[in-house]
Design a protein around this nucleic acid. Structure first.
Lengths: 211, 211
DNA sequence: GTCTATACTGAGATAGAC
DNA sequence: GTCTATCTCAGTATAGAC
């Protein structure tokens, strides 16, 4: 990779992390990086795509670590399947540790997560990993209807994303601000949710009455 | 409220809903509303604050309905406290119904939710309601340590927000696309999570080893 | 293939007349 | 309260030097 491209990525990562995506203009970045404005568009095409590369550079190792932990859990549980808790651990621990190290960076993730524009590219990078985990959850919860498992996975991602990228002023205080402790809270919570009995038709009826 | 202000709010709500916040310029809005550009800054101060008012106008009734349902659940359970499921129902059903009616609008909520800037004002409007619900959850789950309950509430809000405002292409398919059914899935999931046993210290130790 | 200089279009914001 | 005119600054596009 060229030196210019490298400098742009490093500077953008720092400035985006410190001040947020919207607050940092391309002209701020080129001033600090000592490069030309057009170099950004030459190497990345647009500000959005620059952000995407900045984020992906840090997220890739997290996803690799997730898969490695899942591999290990499956090897340990063979010939059976690992329990929900172990799958959750593999999925949640790597990003929780990253969040503990660089909270600023996670705010950027939150932006990408909330934006529609980058979703397609985002999904492409995550899909192989997500699919591996979906299978693992299905094996750990064989009795749950498929549609309900899909929704529970959706809820899980929401809870995780909010924990990782949510605004700091809304985060509860934690003894020691220990990322492992918070990850533990989340694993306990999610395993309870994933293991809950499937939705009873009676509840849907009650909800319809109240609407 | 002046006619100009009303026209701006109505037009902004429609355009933001149809095309998203970033894609709609103030100049689009004034063209369709037939008002002057400066009128927006006179009445709202900035584009961000306009969005905030647009959103709040629709969210206020939802919060009122939440409190009314909680009141009713508490009256029915007196002299005891309502179970977690009933509290969740009061909290989740009103926004789920709104999301079913106007999915476009919920994407705007997602933006506010993800942005740091509006958080303070956002919080001020939600705090009284959130506090009422926090108390209700505490009464329904008297054995859970306070710190852990705070985190579980945080996770709950993340799961709800992701269900309501998440990108449509990531939402699982649902039989009949019934908002009550999805709300039911969420209530079943969250009551399992909230009722889960408190975090075991052993789990934290295991996580620390793997880090 | 890389990078620089410069120009273009459209955004949100504002001062001051009415 | 409302409008005109104007300002500043953003992201983007292109022509051409190395």
């Amino acid at each position: 990779m060229s030196d210019t491209k490298q400098k742009i990525l490093d500077t953008a990562e720092r400035l985006f992390g410190e001040q947020g995506f919207g607050a940092v203009s391309l002209r701020h970045i080129i001033a600090e990086a000592g490069v030309n404005l057009a170099a950004i568009h030459y190497h990345f095409g647009s500000k959005e795509e620059l952000l995407l590369e900045v984020v992906m550079r840090k997220v890739q190792p997290v996803n690799e670590r997730r898969l490695a932990l899942l591999d290990r859990a499956e090897a340990e549980a063979a010939p059976g399947a690992p329990p929900v808790e172990k799958v959750l651990e593999a999925f949640l621990l790597p990003p929780a540790l990253l969040a503990g190290q660089s909270p600023d960076f996670m705010k950027l993730m939150g932006r990408l997560h909330a934006e529609g524009s980058a979703t397609a590219i985002f999904l492409k990078h995550f899909e192989p990993m997500i699919n591996r985990f979906r299978e693992a959850f299905q094996k750990a919860l064989p009795d749950l209807p498929e549609e309900e498992l899909a929704w529970r996975t959706h809820f899980m991602i929401g809870a995780m994303a909010h924990m990782l990228t949510g605004p700091p002023e809304r985060r509860p205080a934690t003894s020691g601000e220990d990322p492992c402790r918070v990850a533990g809270y989340l694993i306990a919570f999610l395993s309870g949710g994933l293991r809950a009995p499937a939705l009873a038709p009676a509840l849907v009826a009650v909800l319809k009455e109240n609407q």
